[in-house]
C-alpha cells in the first residue's frame, strides 16, 4: 500500500488546563478525502496548525508524506498546501496574480502557473473577477470570491496533502457545488485532502472518510455510511407545506406507512421511512399535492 500522506498519532496539545487535542489518531491516504468535523472549539484548527508547523504538540507524532513534521516542519510544509480559515491576504492583488504566485512559490513554471490559474478559475466560475484587484478596505472582491481564490491558491500546484479549513464559508450555493466537485477531483487525481468543515451535509457527498472531534478527542471515525449505521437504508420523505395549511403528518393523520422519525423545520417536514414504503409514500405525497395540501415533496436516500 502507498504511504499515507498524513499520519497523526496520539497527538496531544494543551493550552493550560484545556486539552485542545486529546490523543488524536488520524490518517489520510493518497487519493482520499477525509472530512474533519466538530463543534466550535473542538480542536480542528489546533490540529491543522500543528500539521503545518504553526504550533508544536505536547506529545504524539505527525508525519506528512513520510516526513516528521515536528522535527522538520519546513520540509513538511513543502508537502502541504493550506487554505486557512481566515481569509488569505489578497489586498492589492488580483485573483489571477495571487493564484499564479501561489503556484510559482511551489516551483511551477510561469506558463504552468498561468495555465493552472486559468483552469481553476474556469472550474470555480470566478473568471469574471480574475483581473479585479482586491482592495485593503474589503472592496473589489466579495468574501466568496476571496475564499474561492484562496482555495485555488491551495489547489494550484500538485502537493501530496491539501488541507482546507472551512473552504465554503461565504461561498454561494452554485459555486459551493463547483468547489465540492473540485475537492473531489483533487482527491481523484491522487492528493490526500483533509477537509475541515461544519457543513456536514454537503461535505458528506465528497468525503471518503469522516473523523468527528468532540472537545479535542476523536469520538467517531469511518466512512459516512458506516457512521450513519443501519439507518443507511432508510428513506427521507420531505414535504413542503402550504403557507396557511395544516400539517398532514400531525394526528389525526392518514400517513399510510410507519414513520421512524418526524422533524419539522418551518414549512418543511422530514419523515424517515423504511425503504419498502417508498411506493406508498410517493402515492400518498402525490395525492396530497393533487389536493393542494402540500406545495411539493421529494424522496431521497
Amino acid at each position: 500500500m502507498e504511504r499515507a500522506v498524513l499520519e497523526v498519532e496520539a497527538l496531544t496539545k494543551r493550552f493550560g488546563a484545556l486539552v485542545a487535542n486529546d490523543a488524536i489518531d488520524l490518517t489520510v491516504q493518497p487519493g482520499q478525502v477525509v472530512g474533519l468535523l466538530g463543534h466550535n472549539g473542538a480542536g480542528k484548527t489546533t490540529l491543522v496548525s500543528q500539521v503545518v508547523g504553526l504550533s508544536k504538540p505536547d506529545s504524539g507524532s505527525v508525519r506528512v508524506a513520510g516526513m516528521d513534521a515536528i522535527a522538520d516542519p519546513a520540509a513538511a510544509r513543502r508537502c502541504v498546501a493550506l487554505q486557512a480559515q481566515s481569509q488569505a491576504p489578497l489586498d492589492g492583488l488580483t485573483p489571477r496574480a495571487a493564484i499564479e504566485i501561489a503556484g510559482r512559490i511551489r516551483g511551477m513554471s510561469r506558463n504552468d502557473a498561468r495555465r493552472a490559474a486559468r483552469e481553476l478559475a474556469d472550474e470555480l466560475d470566478i473568471g469574471e473577477w480574475l483581473d479585479r484587484r482586491a482592495m485593503p478596505d474589503g472592496g473589489g472582491l466579495s468574501g466568496g470570491v476571496r475564499r474561492l481564490t484562496a482555495f485555488a491558491m491551495a489547489a494550484v500546484a500538485g502537493v501530496p496533502l491539501i488541507i482546507l479549513d472551512e473552504p465554503t464559508n461565504d461561498v454561494d450555493a452554485a459555486r459551493r457545488r463547483l468547489l465540492w466537485a473540485a475537492v473531489r477531483r483533487l482527491g481523484d487525481e491522487g492528493a490526500g485532502v483533509l477537509l475541515v468543515t461544519h457543513n456536514v451535509v454537503e461535505a458528506e457527498r465528497v468525503v471518503d472518510d469522516l473523523v468527528v472531534l468532540d472537545r479535542g478527542a476523536v469520538v467517531a471515525a469511518g466512512s459516512p455510511s458506516r457512521l450513519r449505521g443501519d439507518r443507511d437504508n432508510e428513506l427521507r420523505l420531505e414535504l413542503s407545506l402550504t403557507p396557511e395549511g395544516e400539517d398532514p403528518t400531525l394526528p389525526p393523520t392518514d400517513v399510510p406507512m410507519p414513520v421512524t422519525r418526524r422533524v419539522r423545520v418551518g414549512r418543511r417536514v422530514l419523515l424517515t421511512i423504511a425503504p419498502d414504503a417508498a411506493e406508498s409514500a410517493v402515492r400518498w405525497a402525490a395525492a396530497l399535492r393533487g389536493q393542494g395540501r402540500v406545495e411539493g415533496y421529494s424522496l431521497a436516500r
Binding site: 508547523g53 519546513a74 486557512a84 491576504p89
Partner: peptide, 16 residues
C-alpha cells in the same frame, strides 16, 4: 498582519 491572519498565512507557506 498579525491581527488579520496574514502573518499566520505567510508562516504556513512552503517558504523558509
Amino acid at each position: 498582519a498579525r491581527t488579520t491572519g496574514t502573518f499566520t498565512y505567510l508562516r504556513a507557506l512552503p517558504v523558509p
